[in-house]
Simulated assay, not measured.
Amino acid sequence: MNMEIATVNALPYEDFVNIFGNVVEKCPIITAAVWSRRPFVSLGAFEAAISEFIDALPESGKEGILRCHPDLAGRDLQSGTLTQESREEQTGAGMDALDSSEASRMARLNNEYKERFGFPFVICARMNDKATILRQLSERLGNERPVERARGIEEVKKICRLRLQGLVLIDALNKL
C-alpha cells in the first residue's frame, strides 16, 4: 500500500493507528500520539514527528521501545509468531537461513546482549546481511549501556523510516 500524504492526513484515528501502528515494532501508542500532529506536509515530516516523540521519552521509555523488538533469529522467527514486518525483514537478511553454528552463536550473543543491557539487540535487518548482523551484535556487546540504548534507538528509527516508505508515497517535491 502506497498512499499519498494527503490520504494519510485524512485517515480517521482508528485507521491511522491500524495502518501505522507497527512502524515502531509493537508500539502503536507512538503512532496514536503523533496522529494529533497532522497534517504532515510530507513523509519526512511524518517520520520527524515519530522521531521527535521517541527522542522526548525518558530513557526508560526508550528502553521500553527496544524491549518490544524480538530477538533476531530467535524463537519468534522459528515459531512463526513475529509480526509480518519483522518476519519479512529478518527473512530478507537471511536470519531464517542460519547454519547450526551461526544459529547457536546468534542465540548465545542475543542472550549475552540481553543480560548485559536489559533489552534485545536491535539492528535494521533490511540494511544488513546475516554476517554483518552477527559481527555488529558481537562488537556492540562492548558498548556501555547509554551508548547502546542510543544506538538501538537509531536503529529503531531506520526500521521505522523503511516501514513508512513501504506505506506512504515519497512526494517528489518533498523528498526530505
Rank of each mutant, 00 (worst) to 15 (best):
M1R: 06
N2I: 05
N2T: 10
M3V: 11
E4T: 11
E4Q: 14
I5C: 13
T7V: 08
T7E: 08
N9F: 14
N9G: 10
L11K: 02
P12A: 14
P12L: 08
P12S: 06
P12F: 08
Y13C: 14
E14N: 14
E14V: 09
D15P: 13
N18F: 10
N22P: 11
N22V: 00
V24Q: 00
V24K: 00
E25T: 03
E25G: 08
E25Q: 05
C27W: 01
I29Q: 11
I29M: 11
I30A: 01
I30K: 02
T31Y: 01
T31E: 02
A32L: 08
A32P: 04
A33L: 03
V34I: 09
V34W: 10
W35S: 01
S36P: 04
P39C: 02
S42C: 03
L43D: 01
A45S: 13
E47H: 13
A49E: 07
E52N: 00
F53E: 13
I54C: 02
I54G: 02
D55S: 04
A56T: 07
L57N: 09
L57E: 05
P58W: 06
S60M: 14
G61D: 12
G61K: 14
K62H: 13
G64M: 15
G64D: 09
I65F: 05
R67E: 10
H69F: 07
D71R: 15
D71L: 11
L72A: 08
G74H: 15
S79I: 14
Q84G: 05
E85Y: 07
S86G: 12
T91Y: 02
T91K: 02
A93F: 12
G94W: 09
A97N: 12
D99Y: 15
D99H: 14
A103N: 11
R105S: 07
R105I: 15
M106W: 05
A107F: 00
R108Y: 10
L109V: 09
N110Y: 03
N110L: 05
N110K: 06
E112T: 01
Y113R: 11
K114H: 15
E115Y: 09
E115L: 14
R116E: 08
R116N: 10
F117C: 12
G118H: 13
G118E: 08
F119C: 03
P120E: 06
F121I: 04
C124D: 01
C124I: 01
M127R: 02
D129H: 03
D129W: 06
K130H: 13
I133H: 01
R135I: 11
L137R: 07
S138T: 09
S138W: 04
R140A: 10
L141V: 13
G142R: 09
G142E: 14
E144S: 13
E144P: 13
A150R: 11
A150N: 09
R151T: 12
I153P: 14
V156C: 07
K157P: 04
K158L: 05
K158V: 01
K158N: 02
I159V: 05
I159L: 02
C160S: 07
R161D: 04
R161C: 00
R163T: 02
L164T: 06
Q165C: 00
G166C: 03
L167G: 08
L167T: 08
L167W: 03
V168S: 14
L169I: 08
L169E: 12
I170M: 09
D171N: 08
A172Q: 10
N174G: 12
K175D: 04
L176M: 07
